[in-house]
Design a protein around this nucleic acid. Structure first.
Lengths: 203, 203
DNA sequence: GTCTATAGAGTGATAGAC
DNA sequence: GTCTATCACTCTATAGAC
């Protein structure tokens, strides 16, 4: 007879919080910002809309945290990729590794990345500013790697850095529309090929 | 003394309809789909939200017509650019001209183009399908020009056409975030430079 | 054709029992 | 911590006077 509920403890508050964030990322990736209601998020993780307020002060706080976690994931993926390079890696090798990692996250694989790419320009201006701030604080970003590559003379001095960034970021955002189910190749192979194209463009 | 209002006739019904569409395009470009209310659109063209229903059956019908007009503009800009080429133009010249035209429209110049680029993936699935259908029916599209260029052997046979399209379309969409006020160059010069980069990528 | 008033349907957020 | 009930608000859409 089950006389105590302590035997099988409920998921801790932090675990449930994380489950809510995961559910929000999934729904946001699938439906976009406007079409995502608290009811959808709650259903996705088996709870009630009102319960979300125990974990987050408002809908936009929840969305914002999903976006900040996405920035973290992109940042970590790029940093890992660059760190894992062999010792003699050139500036362009580093740029390439970061771009490849960014693309791989975006190929409809990671809910946070796909949500980020999809809803970035659907958000209230104030939130967008906060997210942009977090993005700018990422230690290893595309802008810095691009600048380093140019300084090292590994891409043409005439390449416009602003255009190069738009090219890379725009492609990354659009890339999460890729339907990987309809393609035989691995996400890694696809991002590798796209990276080659992008690098050829800015060289 | 003004005894008759017939002297200075009101704008015709069709003209006002067009003014509403222009206002909707402007507001959609500025605020996105979710943040655009009928009240905003009505204010932008000096009328009332309820009056819009005299011209359009629903909010989404209005939005959809803006999007379809945007598709027309992109299609016309590309067709014009290709038609104006000298007689001996190669397949790659045609592709280049079309890409250049598409980019030029997107550099924060044309409300319809900017609205299209911004809200394309914020729309209800049914509307998105209708728009995609119209887009696919455009006589001169990027996919066809890409295929022709490949057939003519003017780009490598190993270039992945699906990736090339994502590269071009994604860059175009993101390009409308370009703040042209902060740049000395003309939209034509910028789109020319970006086109060179894109073509280098897929070559 | 225009404009006021309001119906009708959601949605974010809060109160409060349990 | 959970869940029901409900408030407050916004927005699309319609009714109807003019």
């Amino acid at each position: 007879m089950r006389t105590s509920t302590a035997r099988r403890p409920r998921a801790s508050s932090l675990e449930k919080r994380q489950r809510i964030l995961d559910a929000a990322a999934k729904v946001l990736a699938r439906q976009g910002y406007a079409e995502t209601t608290l009811h959808h998020v709650a259903s996705e993780c088996g709870t009630y809309a009102a319960s979300l307020y125990y974990y987050f002060p408002s809908r936009d706080d929840l969305v914002k945290e999903v976006m900040l976690l996405a920035v973290d994931r992109f940042g970590a993926a790029m940093a890992d990729a660059v760190r894992d390079l062999p010792a003699g890696a050139t500036a362009i090798d580093r740029l390439k590794a970061a771009v490849r990692a960014m693309l791989a996250l975006s190929i409809a694989k990671d809910d946070y990345a796909v949500a980020y790419n999809r809803i970035f320009d659907q958000l209230p201006a104030a939130m967008e500013a906060d997210i942009e701030k977090a993005r700018a604080a990422v230690p290893i970003g595309i802008a810095e790697l691009l600048a380093a590559t140019k300084d090292a003379g590994e891409i043409s001095a005439t390449t416009d850095m602003k255009l190069a960034r738009i090219l890379i970021i725009g492609t990354t955002h659009w890339m999460s529309k890729w339907n990987s189910a309809r393609d035989m190749r691995s996400p890694e192979a696809i991002s590798e090929e796209m990276t080659e194209m992008l690098l050829r463009a800015i060289r």
